[in-house]
Design a protein around this nucleic acid. Structure first.
Length: 776
DNA sequence: GATCGGTATTTTTTT
DNA sequence: AATACCGATC
């Protein structure tokens, strides 16, 4: 059994009735959740009577594993996943009671936006006057608040709302006709199903005797309603969260969900976990000081038994390149005590990763960026997925348009326009559905279509149709491989720029398919389509964090948002400057600033031993360099827990008041520093803003990083516990055994050319290929 | 119908 | 700086 402190034990052993666990950062809440589920199982609760909602799929997976090791067997039948994946499963299982089939497609933001655009065309809303992105976001907000299309028009006072009210219903029609759900729809439709259909409500409400929700402070209204309706029957709802870590207000998360929990669920037992097991005293002191400045919060103070440890380092650098270079030198100096996998670099916006990446690459230090462009959003991956989606869900027009347009087959925008215009007629004549694919199959009946285009469309449709015949029998991988073959997709990719990389990515997609086993859930055994539809729905809901492997042994880079729930012995928080943290737009309202402060707090509390915060004097944004004052958040640092290293010495222009130094700046200096920005601006106009770095003081100069050949890290060693050498024998999850014939590139870009015993020669990205030493 | 090149627009964070 | 979208040309 896990060892627990009294509060944790109380949460774990709490019997029935609502339970609110207010769990501060690093207070062992995952431990509590896991232990609680394990205990429920040990007391004889059947796994399928439990629903655990986590914030990421990864967290669900980890939880499942830990439970398995605690109770000694797989918790078969336990539902564990994100709100979105749980809802998707519900909608799949109960598809008969919805207007979609179980093979529905899940549209990502991109697909949704394209659907919104089509909706706008339908109802004649000028896309030049109204931003598609804004309208999509508006509708998304409405959905997360459970406001349907009809709810918009009624409250339409301002023009934007009125336009939204026009577009929303058309958008809904398009989604329905494509047999697709947007992300938000998964929540909306699941709630509607549970609240509106007594049969479904009783089935699942009755089934889930115990419901546990992690990160409850980040639930939105739809999620709250989902939890409420499900927990109604048994009332055994356990939520875990921390109002200080609520960072998703911008996507509808309502902090009141957690603040009002006791009122919403009478008879709630409250457990507070304020003992932090993660961070040193200094780190916690700094984090506490920062978050204490928020006005709207439940008063609490995390404590730790750990010694104070090193002071928190706060450093001012010239620009983001210097910041990145400084960060790398710090990592190097910490290498005696820590491995690269111990290091996390956190920042506010994805764009900030770039400077770090350049520097890391230059230093040959292996790293991994979590977030940014997701793997499944890469163009070539999406293209291949579009084919598969179309095979599984022939009504999916977005997939059709994407697949039919790549590779080029002589069907352009005009022909597709004609096809769309002619489809209802074709459909009416045939009794077929109104999908573009169905129309394409009868393209010769569409008026005004060039003969060549019609022929190409028919061939395409026939190709998809023949893949469909494989569905009931063939495993997902076989369908995919046959698809690649039938449409010659691999060679189409090879012909493109970066073709090799793209092929590698597609190979990785296939490999992922092989290792995907679906969830061991009895309801879904015997699923048609060889699991392809499950796989597609699964990857639609995967985030980059889900792919993150903490064992990889490389430096991790991610946004503060993505860092939620993680911890690192060494944490760098970069770009802590005005306009970035708090971020410009968010800083316009008091609530916005408070959320940004919570975000900063989340970042600070990820650190176990060492915390280093940096900010820069100038930052590139939208193509030009802008002065950047230290973040106002830095004014609240308790100086005795902080160390300001002696470099990044600012030397203002002669005669200016801004000749202050950051060197061991006492608190008062920060006021000066803020005022000094004015001096900086003035100096910039003069063409020289007067920063000087003295390398002898350990300072960072602006020499391009990477010209220095030392030090070199062996990427293969740090990533995997074996060495990749030319001539070595390896095993690949999909291609089987093979011999390495060449290695090229470095860092994340390391590629291995491998001659496989059965599948021939392939070039793979080592970082993604999942290679292992061949047994024996 | 496809390709090229220009211009406009964009940067918040993500399931 | 980078991308997306649009229009003109082949």
């Amino acid at each position: 059994m896990i060892s627990l402190n009294p509060e944790q034990r109380a949460a774990v052993e709490h019997a029935d009735g609502p339970l609110l666990v207010l769990a501060g950062a690093g207070s062992g809440k995952t431990r509590v959740l896991t232990a609680r589920i394990a205990r429920l199982l040990e007391t004889g609760v059947q796994p399928h009577r439990i629903l655990a909602v986590t914030f990421t799929n990864k967290a669900a997976e980890v939880m499942r594993q830990r439970i398995a090791s605690l109770v000694g067997h797989e918790p078969v039948g336990l539902w564990a996943g994100t709100f979105h994946s749980v809802c998707a499963r519900l909608l799949r299982l109960e598809a008969d009671r919805t207007d979609r089939t179980r093979s529905f497609t899940i549209y990502d933001e991109n697909d949704s936006q394209r659907a919104v655009k089509r909706a706008m065309e339908e109802v004649d809303v000028d896309p030049r006057r109204w931003s598609v992105a804004v309208l999509r976001a508006r509708i998304s907000d409405a959905k997360n608040a459970l406001v349907g299309p009809e709810g918009q028009v009624v409250t339409a006072f301002d023009p934007l709302s009125r336009v939204t009210g026009e577009v929303y219903p058309a958008y809904e029609r398009i989604l329905a006709s494509c047999n697709a759900y947007a992300f938000d729809d998964l929540l909306v439709r699941a709630v509607r199903l549970l609240e509106g259909d007594p049969h479904v409500r009783e089935k699942y409400g009755g089934r889930f005797a115990y419901i546990l929700v992690d990160e409850y402070q980040d639930t939105n209204h739809a999620q709250y309603r989902l939890v409420r309706v499900l927990a109604k029957v048994h009332g055994n709802l356990c939520v875990v969260g921390d109002d200080d870590q609520s960072i998703y207000g911008w996507r509808g998360a309502d902090i009141r969900n957690i603040l009002d929990f006791e009122r919403d669920f009478p008879g709630t037992t409250v457990v507070r976990l304020e003992q932090n097991y993660r961070s040193t005293g200094s780190i916690l002191e700094v984090a506490n000081a920062i978050i204490a400045r928020n006005r709207s919060r439940v008063e609490k103070r995390l404590r730790t038994d750990r010694p104070d440890g090193c002071r928190v380092v706060v450093s001012a650098l010239r620009d983001e390149r210097a910041e990145a270079a400084w960060t790398i030198r710090r990592i190097e100096s910490l290498r005696d005590s820590y491995t690269l996998g111990d290091v996390g670099i956190l920042y506010r916006t994805n764009a900030q990763s770039r400077a770090y990446e350049d520097a890391l690459r230059g230093a040959r230090m292996p790293y991994r960026v979590v977030g940014g462009i997701r793997f499944y959003e890469r163009r070539e991956v999406k293209d291949v997925l579009a084919y598969l989606q179309l095979v599984v869900n022939p009504a999916d027009d977005m997939a059709f348009l994407r697949a039919v347009s790549w590779p080029r087959r002589g069907v352009g925008a005009v022909s597709l326009e004609r096809l769309a215009a002619g489809r209802s007629r074709v459909a009416a004549g045939m009794g077929a559905d109104g999908s573009l694919l169905a129309a394409a199959a009868r393209a010769d009946e569409v008026e005004g279509l060039p003969v060549a285009a019609a022929k190409a469309l028919k061939t395409f449709a026939a190709g998809i149709e023949s893949l469909r015949t494989l569905l009931p029998e063939a495993p997902a991988v076989d369908v995919a491989e046959e698809c690649l073959r039938a449409f010659k997709l691999r060679s189409a990719l090879e012909a493109e720029e970066d073709g090799e990389d793209r092929v590698d990515n597609v190979d990785e997609l296939i490999a992922g398919m092989v290792s995907f086993s679906g969830e061991p859930l009895e309801e879904e055994v015997g699923t048609e389509g060889g699991g392809l539809e499950l796989f597609l729905q699964h990857v639609s809901l995967l985030s980059d964090v889900d792919q993150y492997d903490p064992e990889e042994g490389v430096v991790s880079l991610m946004t503060l948002h993505n860092a939620k729930g993680m911890e690192f012995p060494v944490v760098f928080v970069g770009g802590v400057g005005d306009g970035l943290l708090p971020l410009g737009r968010s800083a316009e309202t008091a609530e916005g600033v408070e959320e940004e402060r919570r975000l900063f707090y989340v970042g600070l509390t990820r650190a176990m031993d060492r915390l280093l915060v940096t900010h820069v004097a100038r930052r590139w944004r939208a193509g030009s360099s802008m002065p950047c004052a230290p973040s106002s958040f830095l004014e609240d640092l308790p100086e005795h827990a902080v160390e300001r290293p002696m470099f990044g010495v600012a030397v203002g222009p002669p005669g200016r008041r801004g000749s202050s130094s950051f060197r061991s700046a006492p608190r008062a200096t920060w006021a000066t520093a803020a005022g000094w920005t004015g001096g900086l601006d003035a100096a910039v106009d003069g063409g020289d803003f007067g920063w000087r770095y003295d390398p002898s003081m350990g300072g960072v100069d602006s020499t391009p990083v990477g010209t220095d050949p030392e030090p070199v890290y062996d990427y293969s060693e740090s990533q995997e516990p074996f060495e990749l050498t030319v001539g070595g024998r390896i095993a690949h999850p999909r291609f089987g055994h093979g011999t390495v014939v060449a290695l090229s590139g470095d860092g994340m870009g390391t590629k291995a050319r491998i001659e496989f015993d059965e599948s021939g020669v392939k070039t793979l990205l080592v970082a993604h290929a999942g290679l292992r030493p061949a047994p024996g």
